[in-house]
């Protein structure tokens, strides 16, 4: 928690209530960017207060939300999302959504922050979990595909653009030919990929927020982490 007054470093928190937070920690440690990155595992409100940005990892969204509420973090997290950059992967992406389909009985708590509706486990159960190459133009070495690891992944079923919200930028879509054959959500699309269909979007940016329905932290490829730090976090510090 060395919080430099001179802003020579930047503190990136990783919500460490449940899930694959250690994997994000390893990825961030290896990054080399202009500023020194201080990594903080966030479990309490005090932890969150010293962060300039936050990563919400993969895990179980219901478990993470409950633990956040029990730790008194739900309100502070919702405030954090309003002002600071946040990246959600998989379960984290569900928490960043404005609404969710396929929620647990009785509904589940979200943080909001991105103008999307997601469906949980959209492609099916674990048997339909898969790996597929993705084209992501915004990344460094963009001609090299990014290896997407989709584990009981959520699907973006609707975008809700609004003039009052920051515009949304689609960073990557998955080709329908790469989806598990057993899934019934999206029909096979020969022209690949229908620009009106939000369901093939797997990486999305809105303002300083980033959403990925797959797990860059489960690969050895740090380009998404680099993108988040460079484009979302460092640029937000400049604009403040």
């Amino acid at each position: 928690m060395q919080h430099s007054e001179l802003r020579e470093d930047v503190t990136i928190g990783i919500l460490a209530l449940q899930g694959a937070f250690a994997e994000h920690q390893v990825m961030l440690k290896k990054l080399s960017v202009k500023k020194r990155i201080v990594i903080l595992l966030v479990r309490t409100q005090e932890d969150l207060e010293s962060c300039d940005a936050l990563i919400i990892p993969g895990g179980e969204s219901t478990t993470i939300a409950l633990l956040a509420r029990l730790a008194g973090l739900l309100g502070p997290l919702r405030d954090f999302v309003k002002t600071k950059p946040v990246w959600g992967t998989c379960a984290g992406a569900i928490l960043l959504a404005q609404s969710v389909e396929g929620a647990k009985q009785g509904g589940q708590e979200l943080l909001g922050g991105m103008s999307v509706t997601v469906a949980r486990n959209g492609w099916g159960s674990q048997v339909e979990s898969f790996e597929a190459p993705l084209e992501v133009e915004a990344l460094r070495d963009s001609d090299r595909p990014f290896h997407g690891v989709f584990i009981r992944a959520p699907v973006i079923i609707a975008l809700h653009p609004s003039p009052s919200d920051p515009p949304m930028q689609i960073l990557s879509r998955i080709s329908t030919s790469l989806l598990p054959r057993t899934q019934t959500l999206v029909p096979y699309d020969e022209d690949d990929t229908d620009p009106r269909d939000s369901r093939t979007i797997v990486a999305l940016r809105q303002g300083h927020h980033l959403l990925t329905s797959f797990h860059p932290e489960l690969t050895k490829d740090d380009r998404f982490h680099e993108y988040f730090v460079r484009e979302c976090v460092l640029s937000s510090l400049v604009s403040q």
Binding site: L17, Q18, G19, E60, C90, F130, A132, V149, P180, H215
Partner: peptide, 19 residues
């Protein structure tokens, strides 16, 4: 793409950590 790889098998276990 490929289903049922060791990557997604062990990956789900990684998502269960801390739980």
């Amino acid at each position: 793409s490929s289903l049922g790889t060791f990557g997604v098998k062990s990956g789900l276990a990684q998502m269960l950590k801390g739980g």
